[in-house]
Design a protein around this nucleic acid. Structure first.
Length: 356
DNA sequence: CGCTCTGTTCAG
DNA sequence: CTGAACAGAGC
């Protein structure tokens, strides 16, 4: 909410920002870029009815990721799981063919049940997450040792879990950090390659992504952040909190967040630590800096909230900064980029109007 | 002290 | 050319 306040402030002063409000409304009607399209489409389909956030910013933010999941949901991902379950249960599946609809439901139940029974800590989001990974991944997750059943138990250590208790730590992250990948990335099931640039932190995350994003992921809901907002209720108890008001709300990272890596000998084997959690990446790149703001969508960490915000634009496709030039109409997620564009494309002169 | 803004730089 | 992230300056 604080962010909003800031935004308001800025928008009030900045004509450009004021514009963006209109811009959003317009964007919905006109063809947008990939992200925009997806987001808007989703907004109209799911989000629209789901949760209308106060700010346009939030409106699209709502875990744009869901876009990919939408397709993925229909994909074999679920069926395969059901198959697995069916195989496992055998008689059950056959006996109750009508449960097809409950494919994911069953899965989710499994997750939850597993989490509650094994973990005895229903509060923890990670466990469900971890469990999901462990249960399904088998088929394709050979490389990571963390696959051990213990992973579930270790889930206790997972940042998410700890976040609850020690959230007050300091840093913040966007929403629930379940998904390491970006919407498009998830879609493609490709490890975050685009981030490989400067994402030292992402390196780890990239390795992780496969698990969380993999099609076999129990349920697209659980794996995708967008889903989190949608169906997050099941995967994360807290999700309700995030979802409603904290889609992009930053939360303090657990004090354990950074430390997770070194951890105790016992936890040293923590699977989550290097496969499905931001902590690994974040801590890797950001040792103890308290100002770690983590993007829920991609788990990327930033030292400044403003940076995180800007970064969030990349996920939402939000481009609040429009080129003032008449004929241009280009929009940018970063103001400096827009300025640069102006300088480059519209000449350094201050005269925006294109001279024929 | 923390945050935002701006400029610069890297990468595709 | 544009997107994205970082670092510095200013408030």
């Amino acid at each position: 909410m604080v962010q909003n306040g800031r935004d308001e402030r800025r928008e009030a002063h900045d004509p450009i920002h004021q514009r963006q409000l209109h811009y959003y409304s317009q964007t919905q009607n006109k063809p947008l870029h990939s992200q925009h399209d997806i987001v808007s489409a989703l907004a109209s389909n799911q989000f629209a009815s789901q949760q209308q956030l106060e700010y346009s910013y939030h409106q699209r933010t709502p875990q744009s990721p869901p876009s990919p999941p939408v397709e993925e949901v229909n994909k074999p991902s679920l069926p395969s799981i059901s198959s697995l379950l069916g195989i496992a249960d055998g008689d059950r599946a056959n006996g109750e063919s009508g449960q097809n609809q409950q494919q994911h439901s069953a899965v989710s139940q499994n997750v939850v049940a597993a989490g509650q029974t094994q973990e005895t800590r229903p509060d923890q989001t990670p466990q469900s997450f971890g469990h999901t990974i462990v249960s399904n991944p088998r088929m394709t997750l050979p490389p990571t040792p963390p696959m051990q059943p213990d992973s579930v138990v270790d889930g206790n250590q997972s940042p998410s879990a700890t976040s609850q208790s020690s959230i007050s730590a300091a840093p913040y992250y966007l929403g629930s950090s379940l998904n390491n990948m970006e919407p498009h990335q998830q879609r493609q099931n490709v490890p975050t390659v685009s981030d490989t640039k400067r994402h030292h932190s992402m390196t780890i995350h990239s390795g992780v992504s496969p698990y969380s994003t993999s099609p076999y992921a129990t349920s697209p809901y659980g794996s995708s952040p967008g889903a989190a907002s949608t169906a997050g209720s099941f995967y994360s108890p807290d999700s309700q909190v995030y979802t409603s008001s904290a889609l992009y709300q930053q939360r303090p990272l657990p004090s354990n967040f950074p430390p997770p890596v070194p951890i105790n000998p016992e936890t040293s084997n923590n699977p989550w630590q290097h496969h499905h959690y931001i902590s690994a990446s974040s801590q890797a790149a950001f040792p103890q800096s308290q100002d770690r703001y983590i993007c829920q969508t991609c788990n990327k960490a930033f030292s400044r909230p403003s940076s995180l915000r800007i970064h969030s634009h990349s996920h939402t496709g939000e481009k609040p900064f429009k080129c003032p030039h008449a004929g241009c109409g280009k929009a940018f997620s970063v103001r400096s980029n827009m300025k640069r564009h102006e300088r480059g494309c519209h000449a350094t002169g201050s005269t925006p109007a294109p001279n024929p």
